[in-house]
């Protein structure tokens, strides 16, 4: 996937027991972001695979002042890419949880 300069990873081991995940997002390459953002700070949040959307979380991060509106698409894409990967892992290897 195209690099957005942002990194999203699991903040806790995925035990596949429910649809809620703990994710952590931070800026890996500040040059790739357009607006102001907080460097060296990781944002941890919960993401429900059944009810949440990456766009909605990105919007709330912009509203909370973590990122500029011009970067909300990159934030949403980073979250979407990671969530897609986690869903595939859950489908492929239930034992992987």
């Amino acid at each position: 996937a195209e690099d957005t300069g942002l990194r999203v990873e699991l903040a806790e081991e995925d035990d596949c027991s429910n649809s809620s995940l703990a994710l952590r997002l931070w800026v890996e390459d500040p040059k790739k972001l357009k607006g102001k953002h907080k460097d060296n700070e990781a944002i941890e949040f919960s993401f429900n695979l059944e009810t949440d959307t990456p766009e909605e979380v990105a919007y709330e991060m912009v509203k909370s002042g973590f990122f500029h509106e011009s970067d909300s698409k990159a934030v949403a894409k980073s979250i979407r890419d990671r969530v897609t990967l986690i869903k595939k892992t859950r489908e492929k290897k239930p034992a992987g949880c």
């Binding site: 931070w26 700070e41 990781a42 941890e44 973590f66």
Partner: peptide, 27 residues
């Protein structure tokens, strides 16, 4: 810890903390 900040937005909780040094070196 004093380094962690909790922000609420539309019912969602964001926990802000420094990126671990080890992760910064990776990038």
């Amino acid at each position: 810890s004093s380094l962690t900040q909790v922000v609420h937005s539309a019912g969602r909780r964001f926990i802000v903390s420094p990126v671990p040094e080890s992760r910064l070196r990776e990038s």
